[in-house]
Design a protein around this nucleic acid. Structure first.
Length: 599
RNA sequence: GCGCCCGUAGCUCAGUUGGAUAGAGCGUCGGCCUUCGAAGCCGCAGGUCGCAGGUUCGAGUCCUGCCGGGCGCGCCA
């Protein structure tokens, strides 16, 4: 496809005497019935001082004479159809030779691209909302590798901060050793909820905060920062318990990191970090706290480095971490896949780094995403609904593990009916893969900026059938399309060797399918450029749809089957299906979604 | 109150950075299993693109003002 676009732009540019860039900016994909590419000529009318209809007519004439295209003017548009024979041959051959690396590029030329993602807080379980940063971050790692970067995935644990003072205090005052031993992280959640209650109370329920609890927690965190052994030992236990729990989920999701490190890594350099800020941008005391003296908008809260009680905040640790990352990796880009709530925070962090004189501050990019909300029926407005947050501080939480389990259970159920002949082992593996795909893909199929609403009934019971679906635009749908392509390849004896006549592929369903494949590379690039894996997900859905339709043609008409009587035709179709298989597989792998060969 | 994000079919979302008659999935209804895998395919119905102005050859897309929702706005991360 890129070849044809370039060819078109090149000829148009030389004919009109305009820079190629100006042409390609306006090149469009029109409605399918009009052709494959379209060039509106309004934009050139002014500079060339010619009637756009005339420009279109002349251009169409020229393009129509080339072997690559047929073209006709329609008013001020040139509609171009790529020679289907060439497009089919060109696209399929390219895929077959590049395999699952089709569409990959080397714009990164091996430079490091740091991705800070997942980054859960210690002592809290991985909740459903963590799916966002985790899956998006993983996909961005793989996408950046496909674009020639060397990704450095960092799981930057929230393993330092006041909440550990709170938690340690809770454990010391009313913790039960046996329960911590047995229940692990789930017990920590309860402790945390109880600690929060003690510290802040619950105005809704009329519960008052416990006298002095919050202050004692704060003191305990200060003690931690000063190296108090008893608290630190406790903290280490909480951390170990958490990491063990996290690993279970990461391995189910197939998520890996190049580095797992947390804020605690920087406790020893906090003073020198603050000194560095002081020397470069300056600091001042504001309401007892130490803040960075950068430029602020009106009413903007200051960027805080040290609280009035002397303990530090995450901002200080993030400055240290950013410096450390640049020193270690000399990154070309450094992405922070973190919720949109922290937008203001990150603009301040980057502004501060920039003011400190680090030119690489411009390479730091916050990749934000929307919030996970609860959507439930509105009792005051029948038929309507309300959106609210999950009250994690009160212990209200959806465990990601639970969601995956639910999806896997559903996959098991379906597979009992549809594919009972799979052995027990494979069946179990595949059900896991399908369930995981359903959960992961539902995240990857929306633009990051959208909030996610989990539907519940009026009693907060999750409507699982709305959350987990295997039909339509889903992960399992793509896995299914892929598994069928594998099945056909198995029955057809694998991809054909040399001497395949791809020019036999002239059926509209075949050329339509090839066009979906041909659009893959540019969408891959765009998915990376916009840090938006959903663009790739959409592309794969389009391929899946086109190939599913194509398969179905063989139901009515045996001559339309891939494995038809005509050997030459069959070989050509096998080549096409192999190309589809490679694209689906390559694309799903980039999204981090498992790709079973049967299901 | 101020700032940022979102608002497109009953629901969940696309819409290639300003181009032609706004597209998918789910759901509803109706079809296709003597299947190269029905987790599939086809069809019908469903839209004042939140509202009102503006910019121009052209606006779902840009600007302004409203409306609705989300998020943020100092010692949490």
């Amino acid at each position: 496809m890129e070849y044809f676009k370039e060819k078109l732009v090149e000829t148009a540019a030389s004919m009109l005497g305009l820079p190629a860039e100006q042409i390609s900016r306006h090149l469009r994909v029109p409605e399918t019935r009009r052709g494959d590419l379209a060039l509106p000529c309004f934009p050139f009318a002014k500079t060339l001082k010619k009637n756009p209809n005339v420009i279109a007519r002349d251009l169409a004439l020229q393009l129509d004479n080339m072997k690559e295209f047929s073209a006709k003017p329609e008013g001020p548009y040139v509609n171009v159809t790529i020679n289907p024979r060439l497009l089919v041959i060109n696209t399929i051959n390219e895929i077959l030779s590049k395999k699952t690396k089709y569409g990959h590029q080397d714009i990164g030329s091996g430079k490091a691209l740091v991705i800070d993602f997942s980054s859960p807080n210690i002592a809290k379980p991985i909740a459903f909302h963590h799916i966002r940063s985790t899956v998006t971050g993983m996909a961005l790692c793989r996408l950046s590798r496909a674009m020639g970067y060397n990704p450095v995935g960092i799981n930057y644990l929230g393993d330092w901060g006041k909440q550990f003072g709170l938690l340690a205090l809770a454990f010391k005052t009313f913790g039960e050793e046996e329960r911590l031993e047995k229940e692990g992280i789930r017990y920590l959640v309860q402790l945390y909820a109880r600690a929060n209650m003690a510290a802040k109370g619950d105005p809704k329920k009329g519960i008052l905060p416990e006298q002095g609890f919050d202050e004692r927690a704060r003191n305990l965190f200060s003690a931690m920062e000063n190296g108090d052994k008893e608290v630190i030992d406790l903290w280490k236990r909480f951390r170990d318990i958490s990491l063990e729990e996290f690993d279970k989920i990461y391995s189910r999701l197939g998520v890996t990191f190049d580095h797992v490190e947390g804020e605690s890594k920087y406790v020893n350099v906090l003073d020198s970090t603050i000194d560095k800020v002081r020397e470069t941008v300056g600091v001042r005391i504001s309401q007892g706290a130490l803040v960075a003296d950068i430029e602020y908008d009106d009413d903007e809260p200051p960027f805080m480095l040290r609280k009035a009680d002397g303990s530090t905040l995450y901002g200080t640790r993030d400055i240290a971490a950013a410096m450390d990352r640049f020193n270690r990796f000399e990154f070309a880009k450094s992405l922070y896949v973190v919720g949109a709530q922290q937008r203001l925070y990150f603009t301040q962090l980057f502004r501060c780094l920039k003011a400190m004189g680090f030119e690489w501050a411009d390479r730091c990019i916050h990749v934000p995403f929307g919030t996970v909300l609860k959507k439930k029926p509105d009792p005051e407005n029948p038929g309507g609904y309300t959106l609210e947050r999950f009250a994690t501080r009160r212990g209200e939480i959806i465990y990601l593990e639970e969601v995956i389990d639910e999806a896997v259970a559903k996959a098991v159920q379906i597979m009992k009916k549809t594919n009972p002949e799979l052995g027990e082992n494979e069946s179990k593996t595949v059900a896991e893969q399908v369930g995981v795909a359903a959960v992961m893909f539902s995240e990857l199929s929306h633009r990051r900026s959208k909030d996610i609403a989990i539907e519940t009934d009026e009693n907060d019971y999750i409507l699982w059938e709305k959350l987990i679906d295997f039909r339509g635009q889903t992960g399992p749908y793509l896995q299914y399309a892929h598994a069928r392509s594998c099945s056909i390849m198995r029955k057809g004896g694998g991809p054909p060797g040399k001497g395949v006549d791809l020019s036999l592929l002239t059926h509209p369903a075949e050329t339509a399918l090839v066009k979906e494949l041909a659009a893959y590379p540019s969408d891959l690039k765009r998915a990376f450029d916009e840090y938006e894996p959903a663009i790739l997900a959409d592309r794969l859905i389009a391929v899946g749809r086109a190939v599913s339709y194509y398969y179905t043609l063989g139901n009515q008409d045996r001559d339309m089957r891939i494995l038809c009587k005509d050997k030459k035709m069959s070989n050509a179709r096998l080549a096409l299906v192999e190309a589809v298989r490679l694209v689906l597989r390559g694309g799903l792998e980039l999204l981090g979604i498992p790709v079973p060969e049967r299901m």
